[in-house]
Design a protein around this nucleic acid. Structure first.
Lengths: 253, 253
DNA sequence: CGTGCCAGGTGCCAT
DNA sequence: ATGGCACTTGGCACG
């Protein structure tokens, strides 16, 4: 029942369950419940979930989740900073999680609790991740020759009417180059996006090059790219795990 | 320790934990672990998570999740149909979850298990939800006057070069109307999308009306809408919970 | 099975 | 706070 780090109760009575859950919430623990429950949500949308056996999690940051035995996403949830509480009404145990702005409410009725526990989890580390579009951008800013010899980046996330150009630069002849980055296989939509940017610039002057940069590209996308006179560079996103994400153009101007 | 529905072990030894986890996976149970662990992921991206106390869940459909004490999303995960197993290597307990196509691998090293449990969850019900864009479309097809008196829908999800028009119809004068639906506050991007569709049709003939339908709209979006000569209808998405999603135009033609 | 697109998207960072 | 966008987006419907 006790292990310092966590408290557990199997097949608790309603009152036991209620006390353990409220205790866990108050202590800012990770509350974990296995129970037969139903759920009602009302907020940006509205939903109803009939009775079934599920995993309920209340996190110390206010996150509330109901997980079914399938899928990655919770079937119902509330985001961080929601306020959760347990209460007993007409002999039944309920969990409620409320969010402000937008006003949203999730109510879970617990028909039968099979396991109620909480965990005083200490976790100071954040995920280190690599392979994002942003990392590709960093890499190209630091090694412009990956695009081609003589390429010089000029701006990043450059705002135009139809969106943001990932990297704006010039080739060795001084022609403007518009770089569109995709960290995964590029599809037709990526080509359309690049084309919109290039069209916007071609209104002003000709000789603008559009380059789609991705680890791979679908067949349809490659066809459209060629039709539109745009270019493709096969580049893998970098894989080095870094926590420092701060690469700016200033280092190179 | 035993409750038919679930099995629980507090502060288990490595071997105990290993056996319980493998048992749970084999029985297609919902496996729930509270443990100090670290994680490495390699696949579409790459990540590393240093040691901390977390919630690990393995679902019978193959879903694998590592949850920190914060955020709705798992810090590491594998989707349904992944293959999970536990193993002991050099005296340490590991969990591994592998996915094919794309090839991805998540490995979790368990430094100390505080609670290991599994839950033979029975859950036959699916979520009933209302308030989606699709529901708005259904509602407008069934009650065209919500757009305006005399409006007649002609086609839904009508394919054009730049995408799909949510609803195509005609007003009482026979002018073509292009309806763009948003189930929540519409932003500039919604106006741009509508404008692209309208432009495509205006090439062919004039007198085409574009209508953005949403429960609300941002200030910037409203300005752009007026500049472009487009219209706005404030409509809330319907709230009735229905499981039957099948409303087609055929009912009205 | 790939392709496209919505989501109570969530999360992150800019203004 | 609001907006704009990437995400190991996930999930679904459709060709």
């Amino acid at each position: 029942m006790n292990c310092m780090k966590c408290k557990v109760s199997e097949n608790p009575s309603i009152k036991e369950a209620y006390r353990l859950i409220e205790d866990g919430i108050r202590k800012r623990a990770l509350v974990v419940i296995l129970a037969c429950c139903s759920a009602s949500y009302e907020g940006r949308a509205r939903s109803r979930l009939d009775a079934g056996e599920r995993l309920i999690v209340i996190k110390p940051d206010g996150t509330f989740m109901v997980h079914q035995d399938r899928k990655v996403d919770p079937v119902n949830w509330q985001p961080p900073k929601s306020r959760s509480r347990a209460y007993i009404k007409r002999g039944s145990l309920y969990l409620e999680s409320i969010r402000r702005d937008p006003e949203e409410r999730l109510e879970v009725e617990i028909h039968e609790a099979h396991l109620v526990s909480y965990y005083l989890a200490r976790d100071v580390h954040d995920l280190m991740v690599a392979g994002h579009e942003n990392d590709m951008g960093d890499m190209i800013i630091m090694h412009p020759h990956l695009i081609e010899k003589g390429f010089r980046p000029v701006a990043r996330e450059y705002a135009v009417t139809s969106g943001f150009i990932d990297i704006l630069g010039k080739d060795e002849n001084g022609s403007l180059m518009i770089i569109e980055l995709k960290s995964r296989k590029a599809g037709v939509s990526a080509v359309k996006q690049l084309k919109r940017y290039v069209d916007e610039f071609r209104e002003d002057r000709v000789g603008v090059r559009g380059v789609l940069v991705a680890p791979s590209i679908t067949h349809d996308a490659m066809e459209m790219l060629e039709e539109e006179g745009l270019e493709f560079r096969e580049i893998e996103p970098p894989r080095e795990l870094r926590s420092n994400r701060g690469v700016t153009l200033d280092n190179f101007l």
